[in-house]
């Protein structure tokens, strides 16, 4: 005759677990009404920063394009317009293809003048491949969005926490 206490105890335990979950905190987020909070380190669409005079900060050095592991950046460099004293060249065109991009943030790390950065903005859903390419206007329009926490700062924060 098999023992009855063992299965009975397992049953009680199982029913206890489901009963506990009946009253525990729910994880569903009510998406369209209450969007899920986005972590500050979330890397979304790129932005091109502007300098003090509202001009694009980029000096068209191609470091980001060279550094991009996904070949997502395409820059067309041109001699800087007259009166731009601080640099010789500027990007006449600047494109980031969001379908190629893997949101690694290497472009941001490579840039010598802090001209490109990733923001928290989630890329919008589009219906054509072309629409996923961020051109210079769109990138500049993102200029005022806060940048995602950089990998460097994120690591620093973690290290600080560890060291106490």
């Amino acid at each position: 005759m098999p023992s009855i206490t063992e299965p009975a105890a397992a049953l009680v335990k199982g029913f206890g677990i489901t009963l506990k979950h009946l009253f525990s905190r729910k994880f569903t987020s009510q998406y369209p009404e209450k969007p899920h909070p986005i972590a500050p380190k979330f890397r979304g669409e790129h932005k091109l920063n502007k300098d003090g005079e509202g001009r694009v900060k980029c000096v068209a050095c191609f470091l980001c394009e060279t550094n991009c592991p996904a070949y997502a950046i395409r820059i067309k460099s041109a001699p800087a317009p007259d009166g731009w004293q601080d640099r010789e060249r500027y990007p006449a065109e600047f494109e980031v293809d969001l379908l190629k991009c893997i949101f690694c943030g290497y472009c941001e790390e490579a840039c010598p003048v802090d001209a490109i950065a990733l923001t928290n903005k989630i890329p919008e859903v589009e219906t054509s491949r072309e629409a996923f390419i961020l051109n210079k206007e769109k990138l500049l329009a993102n200029a005022d969005l806060p940048a995602a926490t950089s990998a460097e700062k994120y690591l620093d924060d973690i290290l600080k926490k560890w060291k106490g």
Partner: peptide
């Protein structure tokens, strides 16, 4: 509803 609540859903 009960199934959802047991599974921590709504």
């Amino acid at each position: 509803k009960i199934c959802a609540y047991i599974q921590d859903r709504i």
